[in-house]
């Protein structure tokens, strides 16, 4: 009997381990495949030149720049709003019907399919506000998409600051806002940064939200203002993979490689910040 239960445990352990291992396999395969096929395409010309011969040659420089503009714009819009909302929700809001509704809305916002954001951006920013298909419209659309990520992670970061810090600070005659500014925020910044960078990574990789709001099929010159259209890496990848015939596989995988490297790099930065903070944290 005893031996038997030991064996059952071993079998269970094996299957649990197997399931966990299965998570690693697709990630590993994707990364290996992209690197294998994409790396040979990477050279200075590929990174710094505009696409040529109907995107069958040349580089992807405008798409890289476009993505950087879009991500920067999204964060300029989403970080302040997201952070202020998180401060309100974690520090000021009481448990009322309205606030529960707000929290529910945020959770649902995170679950909205990205193409719906694209359509929403088209209706609101491109048409209603007459921003046209532009970096501004695209950034705002991406910003709304990553808002829930920023709010949720910032809230978690704020709430993980021990309650006792707030109590002591208030008990020293420090006002609530001063307590937030001098004690809560400084201790939450690493968590907020991590969330922001994860949001950035998400914004950099999405195609659907920029499809109708900013992305240009082919635009060899760099955008001159926020009211211009721009190329972007994920959309460019979509175009050269499905819309333009006879694009060399090397160029497609090279583009995917750059996009993946960009997103992984951002996630890596987030991980490093979190790691450093955990090591420093002592409460």
């Amino acid at each position: 009997m005893k031996k038997n239960s030991h064996r059952t445990q071993k079998i269970a352990f094996f299957f649990l381990f197997l399931a966990t291992l299965l998570i690693v396999v697709p990630v590993g395969l994707i990364v290996v495949m992209i690197i294998q096929k994409g790396l040979p395409a990477i050279n200075w010309q590929f990174l710094s030149d505009v696409p040529r011969q109907g995107m069958r040659a040349g580089g992807i420089f405008p798409a890289i720049i476009g993505t950087i503009y879009l991500v920067t714009g999204a964060i300029i819009f989403a970080l302040p709003i997201g952070l202020l909302a998180a401060i309100y929700l974690s520090e000021y809001s009481k448990d009322s019907m309205l606030n529960r509704l707000i929290k529910l809305a945020i959770v649902n916002l995170a679950g909205v399919p990205s193409v719906v954001y694209g359509l929403f951006g088209l209706a609101l920013f491109v048409i209603f506000f007459k921003f046209g298909a532009s970096i501004l419209s695209g950034s705002l659309t991406l910003g709304i998409m990553i808002l829930p990520i920023i709010i949720t992670t910032s809230r978690e970061a704020l709430e993980s600051v021990p309650q006792s810090f707030r109590e002591v600070s208030l008990s020293l005659g420090v006002s609530k806002w001063q307590t937030i500014r001098h004690i809560v925020l400084p201790n939450a910044i690493p968590g907020i940064l991590t969330g922001t960078i994860l949001g950035l990574g998400r914004a950099a990789g999405e195609t659907a939200p920029i499809l109708f709001t900013v992305a240009a099929f082919y635009l060899p010159q760099l955008p001159g203002s926020i009211f211009d259209q721009a190329m972007a890496l994920p959309y460019h990848l979509y175009v050269i993979s499905t819309q333009v015939p006879n694009v060399d596989e090397k160029i497609r995988y090279g583009t995917a490689f750059v996009l993946l490297a960009l997103v992984l790099f951002m996630n890596l930065v987030a991980i490093i910040i979190r790691y450093k903070f955990r090591k420093k944290k002592k409460w």
Partner: peptide, 9 residues
């Protein structure tokens, strides 16, 4: 003065 000593970090 609180039960658990609670200096700031």
């Amino acid at each position: 003065v609180f039960q658990r000593p609670n200096p700031f970090p």
